[in-house]
Simulated assay, not measured.
Amino acid sequence: MLPDKDFLLKLAHTKMPYGKYKDRFLIDLPEHYVVWYHRKGFPKGQLGNMLTTVYELKVNGLEGLVRNIRDKYPK
């Protein structure tokens, strides 16, 4: 199932709320960090859903799509 438009818009503008990469856009998190989270287990809830999507996008080299959404539809 593909994420819906509202989810992708929110993902494009969501920043990491805590930790070493606090305030960095989720799509701009380093790949090694997202892979580490994938191995450790993503948090529950919407943040976990977003990080799971970021993982899939990065693994498939598609993170540019979310950056384009962020640039085209600024908050």
Rank of each mutant, 00 (worst) to 15 (best):
D4W: 10
D4K: 00
D4Q: 10
D4N: 15
K5N: 14
K5V: 11
D6I: 11
D6L: 12
F7D: 12
F7W: 09
F7Y: 04
L8S: 10
L8K: 07
L8I: 11
L8V: 04
L9A: 13
L9Q: 04
L9R: 09
K10P: 13
L11A: 00
L11P: 04
A12R: 04
A12G: 06
A12E: 02
T14R: 08
T14S: 15
K15H: 15
M16W: 05
M16G: 02
M16T: 03
M16L: 07
M16P: 06
P17I: 14
P17W: 15
Y18C: 05
G19K: 11
G19L: 10
K20F: 07
K20N: 01
K20V: 03
K20P: 02
Y21W: 15
Y21E: 06
Y21H: 10
Y21A: 01
K22M: 02
K22Q: 15
K22G: 09
D23A: 09
D23L: 00
D23E: 12
D23G: 14
D23K: 11
D23I: 00
R24Y: 09
F25G: 09
L26Q: 08
L26Y: 04
L26I: 07
I27V: 14
I27A: 13
I27P: 08
D28P: 11
D28C: 05
D28V: 12
L29H: 11
L29D: 13
P30V: 09
P30S: 01
P30D: 15
P30T: 13
E31H: 10
E31G: 01
H32C: 02
H32P: 02
Y33K: 06
Y33T: 07
Y33C: 01
V34C: 02
V34D: 05
V34S: 01
V34L: 00
V34Q: 00
V34P: 07
V35K: 08
W36D: 10
W36Q: 14
Y37W: 00
Y37F: 10
H38Q: 04
H38R: 13
R39V: 03
